[in-house]
Each structure stands twice: as structure tokens, then as C-alpha cells.
Amino acid sequence: MAVRLTALLAAAGLSLLGTAASAENGRQIGYYRVTLGDMRITVISDGTAFRDTVKLLTRLDAKLVAKMLHDAYREQPTELSINAFLIETGGKRILIDTGAGDLFKPRDGGRLIENLKAAGFSPDDIDAVLITHIHADHTGGLVFNGKKVFTRSKIYIPEADYAFWMDEDAAKRAVEPLKHVYDQARTCIGPYIPTGQIRTFAWGEQLFPGITALKGAGHTPGHSYFALESAGQKMLMVGDTVHVAEVQFARPDASVQFDVDQKAATEQRKALFDDAARRGYWLAFDHVSFPGIGHVRADGDGYAWIPIPYGVNDPKR
């Protein structure tokens, strides 16, 4: 069975390199490695966040949401994964998103650094950090105790998100809950501005060989996807396109409270699912259960999520 699984994944351009999951002081240490063509991808867990997903989801009847979650054996509050992705390619180590850092303490997130080290890396090993969008659970890990974590990395931020969240006049006019997001943006991004580490990018721009930024707007004005392509294989890193897998794959019309433009976010999600189901490339999500990698397929009026199967065998070993 293991040989057959390895062969099937190899045919798809993806091979399993290993996992680590062990208890240490009551915590799970998590990373998960795969290859995509000539790229090596390590999913790094920042832990989880507990949210009332019945209240979180919008544009769908709350009773239906509650039933779907109940049928999926998901309790309230629901524990949502916070995933980040380390890409090794062309001699570079590129991290996509950084988790929540200490912004959600004491219970949620904050495990990126320990799990990065468990996978054999330190923040000083990271050449670049690519940010899908400026929300605290994606940029919070840029700082810890108010200090920069990635002292030598260039930080790549969508230009539309930077313009929106770093607008001082808009921040002064903002009311809760948006005001809190504006404040967090300054907390996370601010320390990197004086040192010239911030780079903004436009959709369609190739940031590194085999890594291109694509439009994913709706969740935030600059919400971005990163297309990874190597040796004829493709994986799309899609950030916050899905928060609650048990509902949003079957009902992509369900949005979340944090979507700045809920209609646009819904349209973007449907378009992504349709394209990925037809073309068969891999998707990687920040909040789908760790490691958040898999495929989607059409299923009736909605879609079904097919997670990557677990495996620890390295076919190159």
C-alpha cells in the first residue's frame, strides 16, 4: 500500500518526505514536508485558534451551519488550524505567512518559532516572508514581545493591503472591530519599516522563480494567492479563502465576519474551487486542518475537500 501511495503521489508530482508530531510539555510539535517538483515545502503549525464558527460564518442560515458542524462532529468553539508554509527553492528559504505570534495569547497560536526549530530552521534562516494579507493571524508572527522575529528577511506584502491597512487617516476614522485590525497591522508591520525590509508587490508579479502572486481579493482588498510551479506541477497557496472546511467547501456561498467584502470573497472562493476542480492542481490553506494541503472536486452543487494522505516515507531515501 505504501509503495502504491508513493507511486501515485510521484505521478502527481508530489512526494511525502516526513512528519513530526510529538507531545512536549503538553503541546503538539507539528511540521509536515512534501515536495512539489524541485521545491521542498514544509508546513509549519502555529497551533490553533478557538472560534465560535456558527457566529463566524455569514450569508448562510445559522441553524443550517450548526447542523453541518454537528454532522461533522465539530464542537463550539471550533478549533481552527493556523498553518504557515516554508518553501525551499533555488537556494532560498521563503516563508508564506507567520501565524499569530503572541497576539492571541495565551491559548491561540504562537507556536511558529518552536515548530520552525523542530523542523530544523531558525528565523535567521529565512530569506523572505510572503504575506497573503495583513490580518493578525498571518502577520502576528513577524513580532514577538514587540520585537522583530525575522531580522534579516525581506517582508513581501500585497500593495493593496499595505495601502488599505497602513492608511493613517483611515485608521483614525475606523471604529471597532476594524480599528483593532488597523492597530494590529502597525504592531506587526511597523518595526520592519525603518529598516527598509518591507517590499510591496502587485498581482501577476513573479516574486521568485516559480512563485507568482495572484489576485485573491475579497477577504481583504489585497488578499493574495501564491502560485508555486515546478517541473510541470502546481500548488496554489490560498490563505484565508476557507476558514471552516466543514461548511465552506459544500457551501462556498458561506462567508465569514472577517471578510472585508463578503460578496467578492464568495465569488473568489467559487471561482477558485471551480478552477482547481477542473484542472486538478494542489491547494494549500492557512486554516484547513493541518497540514491544509489537498485537492477539491465537484460534488453536487458544491465541492468536496480531499486532504493529502498521511505518509512518512521519503522515496529518495
Rank of each mutant, 00 (worst) to 15 (best):
V3G: 13
L9A: 02
A12E: 15
G218K: 07
H138D: 05
V288F: 06
A12C: 11
A10W: 13
A265H: 02
G222A: 06
V129F: 02
D97T: 09
D275S: 12
I87T: 06
E168R: 15
P177H: 10
L142W: 02
A254L: 03
D125Y: 06
A128E: 07
A66L: 05
G47F: 05
A163E: 14
L142C: 05
A174M: 00
A264L: 15
I94Q: 00
L16A: 06
L57K: 06
L60N: 01
P123G: 00
L116Y: 08
V238H: 09
K270E: 13
E205F: 09
V129H: 03
H243M: 12
I155E: 05
Y156D: 03
D97V: 01
T6W: 09
D127K: 10
A11M: 12
A12P: 05
T195S: 14
L80G: 03
A128V: 06
G292I: 00
L69N: 03
M166T: 09
F50W: 13
I82Y: 06
A271Y: 06
V242N: 02
Y31T: 06
Q268A: 13
N25M: 15
L57Q: 08
L14A: 07
W282Q: 03
T212A: 08
T151D: 09
V129A: 03
R173E: 12
V238S: 07
P177L: 09
K63Q: 15
Q233N: 14
G280W: 05
R27A: 14
T139Y: 01
I308C: 08
F290M: 09
D38Y: 10
F164W: 14
H133C: 13
P291L: 02
G26Q: 11
V312C: 13
Y192G: 04
Y156M: 05
A7I: 09
D124P: 08
V181K: 02
M237H: 12
I134E: 01
E246H: 04
Y156K: 00
R251E: 12
K63T: 13
V54I: 15
G18N: 08
E24R: 15
L130R: 02
E75N: 12
A100E: 03
R297M: 12
D169P: 07
A174L: 02
R297L: 11
A23E: 15
G140L: 04
A213D: 03
D38H: 13
K316R: 14
R27C: 12
A118M: 09
K105N: 11
E159I: 12
E267R: 07
D137M: 01
A23G: 14
I157G: 00
H287S: 13
T212R: 12
D183Y: 05
V181N: 00
T200G: 07
L95S: 04
